[in-house]
Amino acid sequence: VSVELPAPSSWKKLFYPNKVGSVKKTEVVFVAPTGEEISNRKQLEQYLKSHPGNPAIAEFDWTTSG
């Protein structure tokens, strides 16, 4: 189950709350306009370098507050 949070234009930000008793931590995933899922800052940096014209990296908020 995921919750969609505010994201930069043409992107989606999905929040996957951890299940009770789960060892997996809460996860935030950005979905690029191409449909590619980005789950960490390093991936995001690589994606933005190879896909010019996207929002600046500073516009991506990895917190769950939206």
Rank of each mutant, 00 (worst) to 15 (best):
Val1Phe: 11
Val1Arg: 09
Val1Glu: 13
Ser2Leu: 09
Ser2Tyr: 15
Ser2Gly: 12
Val3Cys: 14
Glu4Gln: 09
Glu4Lys: 07
Leu5Gln: 06
Pro6Gln: 08
Pro6Asp: 08
Ala7Asp: 03
Ala7Ser: 06
Ala7Arg: 03
Pro8Lys: 05
Pro8Ala: 04
Pro8His: 05
Ser9Glu: 15
Ser9Ala: 15
Ser9His: 13
Trp11Val: 04
Trp11Leu: 04
Lys12Ile: 10
Lys12Leu: 09
Lys13Met: 02
Lys13Arg: 04
Leu14His: 06
Leu14Thr: 04
Leu14Arg: 06
Leu14Glu: 03
Leu14Phe: 15
Phe15Asn: 05
Phe15Tyr: 14
Phe15Ala: 09
Tyr16Ala: 06
Tyr16Asp: 03
Pro17Thr: 13
Pro17Val: 14
Asn18Met: 11
Asn18Gly: 12
Lys19Phe: 13
Lys19His: 13
Lys19Trp: 13
Val20Phe: 12
Gly21Ile: 06
Gly21Trp: 01
Gly21Arg: 06
Gly21Pro: 07
Ser22Leu: 10
Ser22Lys: 11
Ser22Tyr: 08
Val23Lys: 14
Val23Asp: 15
Lys24Gln: 14
Lys24Ala: 13
Lys24Tyr: 09
Lys24Arg: 14
Lys24Phe: 11
Lys25Asp: 14
Lys25Gln: 12
Thr26Asn: 14
Thr26Cys: 15
Thr26Pro: 15
Glu27His: 15
Glu27Ser: 14
Glu27Arg: 15
Glu27Leu: 15
Glu27Trp: 14
Val28Arg: 01
Val28Ala: 04
Val28Lys: 01
Val29Pro: 00
Val29Ser: 06
Val29Cys: 06
Val29Lys: 07
Val29Gln: 04
Phe30Pro: 00
Phe30Gln: 00
Phe30Thr: 00
Val31Asn: 02
Val31Leu: 11
Val31Arg: 05
Ala32Lys: 00
Pro33Val: 02
Pro33Met: 02
Thr34Tyr: 02
Thr34Arg: 01
Thr34Val: 00
Gly35Glu: 01
Gly35Trp: 01
Gly35Arg: 02
Glu37Val: 15
Ile38Lys: 00
Ser39Thr: 14
Ser39Met: 12
Asn40His: 06
Asn40Gly: 07
Arg41Gly: 09
Arg41Pro: 15
Arg41Gln: 13
Arg41His: 14
Arg41Phe: 13
Arg41Ala: 10
Lys42Glu: 15
Gln43Val: 08
Gln43Pro: 01
Leu44Ile: 01
Leu44Ala: 00
Leu44Pro: 00
Glu45Gly: 07
Gln46Val: 10
Gln46Met: 11
Tyr47Cys: 00
Leu48Phe: 02
Lys49Asp: 13
Lys49Cys: 09
Lys49His: 10
Ser50Trp: 07
His51Trp: 04
Pro52Thr: 06
Pro52Ala: 06
Gly53Trp: 05
Asn54Ser: 13
Asn54Gln: 10
Asn54Trp: 04
Asn54Thr: 07
Asn54Ala: 08
Asn54Lys: 03
Asn54Glu: 09
Pro55Gln: 04
Pro55Ala: 06
Ala56Phe: 06
Ile57Lys: 05
Ile57Leu: 13
Ile57Asn: 04
Ala58Pro: 04
Ala58Asn: 12
Glu59Pro: 01
Phe60Asn: 01
Phe60His: 01
Asp61His: 06
Asp61Ala: 05
Asp61Glu: 07
Trp62Val: 02
Trp62Thr: 02
Trp62Glu: 01
Thr63Val: 06
Thr63Asn: 11
Thr64Phe: 11
Thr64Pro: 13
Thr64Ile: 14
Ser65Gln: 11
Ser65His: 11
Ser65Pro: 15
Ser65Asp: 13
